[in-house]
Amino acid sequence: MRNDSEIFKKILTGFVTEEDPLLAMMKWMMDQLMQIEAQMKVGAAKGEHGSERKSHFSGYRPRRFDTRLGTVYLMIPKIRRGGYIPFFVTEKRRSEQALIAMVKEAYVNGVSTRKIERLAKELGIENISASQVSQINKGLDEQVEEFRNRPLQKEYPFIWVDALYEKVRNHEDRVVSTAIMIAYGVTIEGNREVLAIEPFVSESTETWKSFFDRLKARGVEKIALLISNAHQGIQKAFKQSFIGASWQRCKVHFMRNILAHGPHRAKEKFAARLKSIWLQEYREDALQIAQMIIDEYDKKFPEAIEVLQNGLENSLQFYHFPQIDKRRISSTNVLERINKEIRRRSKVVSVFPSRESYLRLIATYLMEYTENWESERSYI
């Protein structure tokens, strides 16, 4: 008994030197509980042989776990058959996480606090009030603002920008179309990151200039290549804000612009020919294919060919970065996929009650994306 007491005392003394003793103590306890629970599920300790063994350990997986004391990063044991999730994670997901998620989702979707309170009671959750909902929402807003205003790195080789539009009720109680401008970038290390989420009434040279200036104010000094659609405001503002950087016109949007001027009956064949331009290994080959298409279709589709000639050079800027997979930086597809997911969630709200609620929904979703990317391997 005395020996056990001494061991326990030594363990507790070790926590005193930690930056956050209570958080460190809780993490240690979680690690011990995971070890015990995983061994019970496997039927034996790691490396131990026995007739009671039901499965085997297969390394660990990292998992972020948010608690009232702070955030901890757990190394959860992986089990070959049956899998394993710690009981305290599933319990939190069923109770506190479910409650907070419901409150946040409902609130960002414009549901009033009183309605949320009634909904919570219908689900069997009694201990929640309108003031608690407001407090949770306040905490969410603080996280959003911290994320949107965080300092950025000095250099992002590649940045993608785009704007989302939703119907939002303004302060005059009118429903208006509101833009949320988004910047997504890749760091020097090749990791993905959502850089900016800014609301504006409309897209213009002035608003995009303000958007890029805000990126600079947060620390961005150098961009090698900006990828976007051909919005005039983006082009003009970017040239003014980041002198010496290149602009890549999204090849997918560019193809759509060209095909809009071609007859429908010949669109499939024409599109296949156009697509071959950007599939070439080298820029010289792409230019050669483009010239062949221009010669072939100049008289058939003069308007479409004019669009191709005027925008071709800007659509080939990715060839100046031969060390990078051209599929990654030749279009805004990577941003389009994120936007599609955002729209899938936002379409359930026909009209957002305020610009703040719209911004909150998008920002929280993009924050989750950025956090998930932190544990993934490099994008480029």
Rank of each mutant, 00 (worst) to 15 (best):
193 E>D: 00
218 R>N: 03
232 Q>W: 11
257 N>L: 03
236 K>G: 04
172 E>V: 15
250 C>W: 01
294 I>V: 11
278 W>C: 01
195 L>I: 05
198 E>L: 05
200 F>R: 04
202 S>E: 15
207 T>V: 05
170 N>A: 08
271 A>P: 08
231 H>A: 04
262 G>P: 14
163 A>W: 04
268 E>N: 09
231 H>C: 07
238 F>I: 12
225 L>N: 10
214 R>M: 13
171 H>N: 07
221 E>T: 09
240 Q>N: 07
294 I>Q: 09
189 E>F: 02
198 E>Y: 13
249 R>K: 00
253 H>D: 13
236 K>S: 13
276 S>E: 12
196 A>N: 12
270 F>E: 01
237 A>H: 01
292 M>F: 06
173 D>G: 00
231 H>R: 03
216 K>Q: 04
284 E>Y: 09
265 R>M: 09
293 I>Q: 01
186 V>M: 02
291 Q>W: 07
211 F>P: 11
223 I>Q: 06
266 A>Y: 13
260 A>H: 15
244 G>C: 13
229 N>C: 07
186 V>F: 05
282 Y>G: 06
226 L>E: 11
264 H>M: 15
256 R>W: 06
228 S>T: 05
180 I>Y: 07
243 I>Q: 02
183 A>Q: 04
219 G>S: 09
167 K>E: 15
178 T>W: 08
205 T>N: 04
235 Q>L: 14
268 E>T: 14
244 G>E: 13
162 D>C: 00
259 L>P: 13
200 F>M: 06
246 S>G: 07
291 Q>L: 08
287 L>C: 00
208 W>Q: 00
242 F>Q: 03
170 N>F: 01
190 G>E: 05
175 V>F: 14
238 F>S: 08
217 A>W: 12
252 V>D: 02
194 V>Q: 04
281 E>Y: 01
237 A>R: 03
244 G>K: 14
200 F>Q: 09
253 H>W: 08
234 I>Q: 07
196 A>G: 05
227 I>W: 01
212 F>A: 10
292 M>D: 13
244 G>W: 01
201 V>T: 15
226 L>Y: 12
186 V>H: 01
186 V>L: 02
284 E>S: 10
220 V>D: 11
290 A>K: 00
197 I>Q: 04
293 I>F: 07
292 M>K: 14
259 L>K: 09
179 A>W: 00
281 E>P: 10
228 S>A: 05
246 S>T: 10
252 V>E: 09
274 L>Y: 10
262 G>R: 12
229 N>M: 05
202 S>C: 00
279 L>N: 15
250 C>A: 03
263 P>I: 11
165 Y>G: 03
